[in-house]
């Protein structure tokens, strides 16, 4: 059984690698990351490992993401487990399905949420094509076995939420209300 600290370091290392891949390989995705995170602090949780992420800009304009162990009692902005991420990447479930079924929890101001969603979709679209992202994902899929549960066998017909569009669940008054941007 790997030590908790080692696992946390491994996770921090993988997030740093992802940031660097985006920095050098995908300007669009990196800008999304910048817009969603610059000068903000967020606490994310994966398989019970809570990390505090803070991004800032150096004098030369370079974005720096500082990741460390979160403090007890910090409010979580994003929480999921590796099984859910692996199911999404395999197509057993969609990202929308994971949110609807509360397998993936995310909380942020609406503007940041939109950027996070765009960034996630870009990562999903780019993931299979970018050699470095593919390698990083492969390592995560094979080496990160924190919760130990294998992916259940599911027919592809179950990959989408039964109630179809998330959009249809948003009240019309909310959809028609004016947004500040």
């Amino acid at each position: 059984m790997p030590k908790k600290q080692d696992q946390r370091d491994k996770l921090i290392g993988m997030i740093h690698r992802m940031v660097e891949i985006l920095r050098y390989d995908n300007t669009y995705a990196f800008d999304l990351l910048k817009n969603a995170t610059l000068n903000k602090r967020a606490v994310i949780e994966l398989d019970g490992y809570r990390l505090s992420l803070k991004s800032s800009q150096k004098r030369q304009g370079e974005l720096v993401v500082d990741i460390k162990k979160a403090r007890a009692g910090d409010e979580i902005s994003f929480s999921t487990d590796s099984l859910t991420l692996k199911q999404i990447m395999a197509g057993a479930i969609t990202l929308d399905y994971a949110v609807v079924m509360n397998k993936l929890y995310v909380k942020a101001p609406f503007y940041d949420l939109l950027n996070i969603y765009r960034l996630t979709i870009t990562l999903l679209a780019e993931g299979p094509l970018n050699k470095h992202l593919r390698k990083l994902w492969r390592e995560f899929e094979l080496d990160w076995r924190e919760n130990g549960a294998p992916r259940p066998i599911m027919p592809l017909e179950q990959q989408k939420p039964a109630n179809a569009y998330l959009l249809e669940k948003i009240p019309e008054t909310v959809l028609l209300s004016k947004t500040p941007f």
């Binding site: 197509g91 057993a92 990202l95 179809a164």
Partner: peptide, 18 residues
């Protein structure tokens, strides 16, 4: 309809496409 989609990442990228 919303048929099942592969690869998995594309199922999410085009998750709302009917």
């Amino acid at each position: 309809e919303m048929p099942p989609v592969l690869p998995g990442a594309m199922a999410s990228v085009f998750g709302d496409r009917s």
